[in-house]
Design a protein around this nucleic acid. Structure first.
Lengths: 206, 206
DNA sequence: GCTCATTTCGGAGCGTAGTCCGTATGTTAG
DNA sequence: CTAACATACGGACTACGCTCCGAAATGAGC
């Protein structure tokens, strides 16, 4: 036998994969609220008790699959931001993946946002989601930092704080769209104007 | 008999009051998650079926009692904002009641915020809560408008949009505190610095 | 191969939000 | 006053997320 990985570990990985696949398929096709944990357990061919040994809650199951998408979007955004030619454009490029993706099921995105903000459990998937969010906020900070070479920073302004202000505003605007208020068609323009107003008091071209 | 109000209407008003009192006492003392709808029904001396004829859901019961507090805070804030001598000070005065109140039970405030943002039902109490939120956002708009006489508006800036940017940021910061991230002790200072950065690009003293 | 310890499994069971429908109560007409 | 109707009531019931614990599977020691 390949010794290092016993049957037990393989079984575990196997179940993990089946659960992920079942959750992804059902949530994507039917939306969070229409899916029961029983359906996921049945489809993954495990008992409900087992299901909750692999994720602390139904919400964690959703975060598990959403984190994957988020991971790709974040990576893509950070790469694209590097070639932005102004702070505003770089920030817009950073967020573009989150915006352009037409969320197949907006409900899932809304629940994801809701759990990130208001979830109380400290499960592994929520922890990962929070890390992704921080990553975006830090990326905005890095962008602002990068442009200090070509722009002047208004005296007395703290760039980290400004990054948080910026991110808060954009985050809230994304939430507005996901919960059905706020028009997805004008989202890009709205975000851009928010950023413009914000950065005017922070960075100005030399 | 006083004719205009039949026994039926009085019974209804009576139950409404008992339910409100029961919900307020229990939520305030024990916090949202520790209270069951059964407890509220028992204390109000109605059946659970009856309870849900007076509010669409447990969350609506919470909003029912939180709206009252919010109504007072909003009124107070708007009055205080009128005598602010700068845009920043006026906005800080507007929000002061939301900040200074030491939330006896932060959980309730967090749930209130969560339901306002992410609730899906269209019950009467959520509708009222949304109206309160709009009221605050509009109040910020009014403040900015008021100061156009003593400050110049940066060309190209839309004051309504700026009000929303401002409110989004402050709203998010309040949420951060309610969910346990963000330090309540530095909240006022944090909010002020957010507002300062934001308004720099919007209104400047003539 | 056999025994024992440890980890994993899974479905019966629990708590709770919310519904359904038969019953009770108030209202109106004659 | 009575009958017929309309509305409100409430508790048994359902659905669903999640837990608990006995059973089963795996690995270790000999």
């Amino acid at each position: 036998m390949l010794a290092t990985v016993g049957r037990r570990a393989r079984n575990k990985a196997d179940k993990q994969e089946r659960i992920f696949a079942a959750a992804e398929e059902l949530f994507t096709r039917l939306g969070y609220s229409a899916v029961t944990t029983q359906m996921i357990a049945d489809r993954a061919d495990v008992g409900t008790g087992t299901l909750f040994r692999y994720a602390d809650s139904k919400a964690e199951l959703l975060m598990m699959i959403m984190n994957e998408k988020m991971r790709l979007d974040t990576r893509e955004g950070i790469a694209a931001a590097a070639s932005g030619t102004s702070p505003t454009e770089a920030i817009m490029a950073l967020l573009a993946p989150q915006i352009h993706l037409p969320p197949a099921c907006p409900e899932n995105t809304a629940v994801y946002q809701r759990e990130i903000l208001f979830g109380t459990e400290q499960g592994q998937y929520r922890t990962e989601a929070l890390a992704r969010i921080s990553e975006l906020e830090n990326a905005i900070g890095d962008i602002l930092e990068r442009f200090t070479s070509t722009h002047r920073v208004r005296p007395g302004v703290d760039l980290t704080g400004a990054a948080r202000t910026t991110f808060s505003t954009l985050h809230m605007e994304l939430i507005r769209v996901n919960i059905g208020r706020g028009d997805p068609r004008t989202l890009t323009a709205t975000l851009r104007s928010h950023v413009d107003v914000l950065l005017y008091g922070v960075l100005a071209p030399r």
